[in-house]
């Protein structure tokens, strides 16, 4: 198990440099003006960030207020006996639940975990992985099915919840091995 984690960490270090190398080399071989393309894309990236700034302000304030009030601590303490049973960290319960409804609100809570417990702590790592392997189930289902004018969603929710459950379990498991 230890070696698996070592391989994973090694891959993490490799992936970004390798990806840059591959993309740029591929672009040059395809005789693209790679730098011009890059600058154009970077401009789009900045626009995206500017678009999320207002939502981030709103949600970080909401989470900040919730944290300062002591409510988040109260909630995770209240849930502790329950989460103890399934060996799930109670501090991550608010994040896990909110993640299914709103990506930006979940981001606010994940940042709160980083601030309170540190990015490289067990909780910080688990929150990082969890954010990367789960989706906003209810939001996605509602806009997608609204588009197709579907009311009866059949087994979609069951499948989505299963995928999320596996993702959450894998996050805490992998984070535990990294520590």
């Amino acid at each position: 198990m230890k070696t698996v984690i070592q391989i994973l960490l090694y891959l993490s270090d490799m992936l970004v440099p390798f990806l840059i190398l591959y993309v740029v080399a591929h672009g040059l071989l395809a005789r693209r003006p790679v730098y011009d393309d890059f600058v154009k894309g970077a401009k789009d990236g900045l626009k995206t960030v500017l678009q999320i700034l207002p939502t981030l302000v709103g949600l970080m304030v909401a989470v900040g207020v919730l944290r300062a009030s002591g409510f988040l601590d109260f909630l995770s303490q209240a849930l502790h006996p329950l989460t103890e049973l399934v060996h799930f960290p109670s501090e991550l319960v608010p994040l896990t639940i909110v993640r299914m409804f709103s990506a930006s609100a979940a981001t606010g809570l994940a940042l709160d975990v980083f601030k309170e417990y540190g990015t490289d702590s067990y909780l910080g790592l688990a929150a990082s992985i969890l954010m990367g392997c789960t989706e906003t189930i209810f939001y996605t289902m509602s806009i997608y099915f609204m588009t197709a004018k579907v009311k009866k969603t059949r087994y979609t929710l069951a499948g989505a919840l299963l995928a999320t459950l596996v993702g959450v379990a894998a996050s805490t498991w992998l984070a535990g091995m990294m520590k």
Binding site: I5, I7, L8, L9, Y10, L11, S12, D13, L15, V16, D120, L125, S128, I129, L130, G132, C133, G167, A170, S171, L174, A175, M178
Partner: peptide
């Protein structure tokens, strides 16, 4: 550091 673990998850 979380890239590969996230990918695995």
């Amino acid at each position: 550091a979380v890239i590969a673990p996230s990918l695995a998850a």
